[in-house]
Design a protein around this nucleic acid. Structure first.
Lengths: 331, 331
DNA sequence: CTGAAAGCGCTAACAC
DNA sequence: GTGTTAGCGCTTTCAG
């Protein structure tokens, strides 16, 4: 080598091993700097059989929810010293994930974060081929899969908070606009709405809810339908803030007063919701935390796997929080 | 090898080389499948000195703009067969990017997409160490750096569209709420506002604008200030939709009618803006396209670099589009 | 058409 | 403390 040393010693310096004399270390560091030498993480991964990288599979980055989760993932990974290899599914419902998984494995990621919400049967591959994946994997915003770990927000409890808040405000005819029911999260929220009304002795009928697809425009359509099927409705729990926004907007056009004639509660707490007119009561879910926790748990599992210990599947539930604003204050 | 062939022949099969007999190929493919063998992209990258991966540096994924751009990047990369190694700066203004760059280079990425908007002096490192980066790099939403390629939306032209639209609607006292002026994009938009007014023979005074920081709350504060400093204002061009939203909201509370008393135009065309009350006129910029084009251009440069050809720095400008809605219709 | 040898850049294991 | 040897999993080159 240029510095008159073996590549071995250089390796020792780079990895901060103790068994190098201070002078040698000094000299090597100088030469390294001079040559602007860069150790190859690739070669190292190859021999160490450890890449210090995680595969992240996401979908729908054009929406704010998945992005915030990814934001949490990058934060967690940076903190723990992992690099991220990012894959985005072309659609939420994409079922053919084999090639993508193979690609991640081919690049020797140490673990995988599956940050695609559970929709329809888009998690079917898990049942079929989870056992073929030789590294730890963690799911975000999905039902617990047997044998796999997951992190999710407790949508049930969050939605229940919203409905109870409306009940406590004296509302009795509480409608619901759900997200698309092939989404697990949408089903959870709707279920909680149903249960809570039932618990209050006022079970909901089929005419009291309508289905949207999370988009504002679908929310508007669902609201129109609901106004027809459930006259006298005095409150509505909407599956997300974007649909709730269009409810506010449509209500204005119809001359309904909010919250006097109709109380509205959303879900997500998107940043804009505080500035809707009126400001929107909503359920806050910390999507950033979701990503962060997932990475932490995954990293822990990777450590265990490295030392050949058994990893216990773990289900982590984050709690959601009710944010009361003007759209639901009591008359 | 198990199939009674050398690793060599296997390599040829995997890489679809022509010089293998059909029977041998058949047999090898069968064995590969059976052993669920996975070629290592890592080892291949090492020897080929080509990883088919791109480094992506972003910031602010918790906001929708950067995420949409990333969405475009993943799309473009998937199409071209590149994997992505994602890094997110902890802050927009982060200046210490050396370690992060080293990390990408250590992982042998073939090129880098720098998707961090230009703010303050956070692109200073470019002047200092661009030449030390031995691979193609492309900048998104930044001024052109000498010797480097970039892709950006023409904020100037877009903002001019907005202001001309207000002028054509008969508005004469047009204020501006800018984004934070250490942002290049904010400066461009403000500049266009100024120029356009000047071109109309009504140069703007210092009392006719206020600075926000993109957030709704800052927009509200700026609006309050502007109402005081520029009484009689009949229109306002706001630097982004989130701030415009809070202008709508604050105007309601003050009993101002929009657009009769005040026309409002935003910038970005976030999905919610069509459902604001009233719906928001805004300038649409295609952030997805931004990411997509950047990857395409970068991939082209990588191909050139592979064949040792000289790469010409290129500046790509995307045009923005005015979306007219209710918040600005003529009285 | 197929195989053998060499080596990408690194580190584990063992000398000295 | 430091050097030597071997090898991670692949592809390139050159023989057969």
């Amino acid at each position: 080598m240029v510095a008159g040393v073996s590549t071995q010693t250089v390796s020792r310096v780079i990895n901060d091993r103790p068994d190098v004399s201070p002078e040698t270390r000094e000299r090597i560091l100088r030469v390294i700097d001079q040559l602007s030498y860069r150790p190859s993480a690739l070669a190292r991964s190859l021999i160490q059989r450890r890449s210090y990288s995680l595969g992240v599979v996401t979908a729908g980055l054009k929406y704010i929810g998945p992005s915030r989760t990814l934001n949490g993932i990058t934060g967690g990974a940076a903190e723990l010293g992992y690099a991220l290899i990012l894959e985005e599914l072309p659609h939420f419902e994409t079922e053919d994930v084999k090639p993508l998984l193979q690609n991640l494995l081919a690049r020797h990621v140490d673990g995988i974060v599956w940050a695609v919400p559970q929709i329809g049967d888009n998690h079917r591959w898990v049942r079929e081929s989870l056992r073929e994946i030789p590294i730890p994997i963690i799911f975000i915003s999905s039902q617990a899969h047997p044998g796999a770990s997951s992190v999710a927000v407790d949508n049930r409890a969050g939605a229940a908070l919203a409905v109870r808040h409306l009940l406590e405000g004296g509302r009795r005819r509480i409608g619901h606009i759900s997200g698309p029911l092939d989404w697990w999260e949408a089903r959870e929220r709707k279920l909680a709405w149903n249960e809570t009304l039932e618990g209050a002795g006022a079970p909901a009928g089929e005419n009291q809810w309508a289905e949207g697809n999370w988009s504002s425009s679908s929310g508007e359509a669902a609201f129109e339908q609901l106004l027809r099927s459930y006259p006298g409705m005095d409150a509505v729990f909407v599956g997300n803030d974007q649909m709730a926004l269009s409810v506010l907007s449509a209500a204005h056009r119809k001359g309904m007063r909010i919250p006097q004639d109709l109380a509205v509660v959303g879900f997500d707490n998107i940043v804009e919701s505080a500035y809707f007119w009126p400001s929107l009561t909503t359920v806050h879910q910390d999507q950033h935390e979701l990503g962060c926790r997932a990475v932490q748990e995954l990293a822990a599992q990777i450590e265990l796997a490295q030392s050949d210990q058994k990893i216990e599947p773990k289900t982590i539930m984050l709690t959601a929080e009710l944010i009361v604003r003007d759209s639901s204050i009591t008359r």
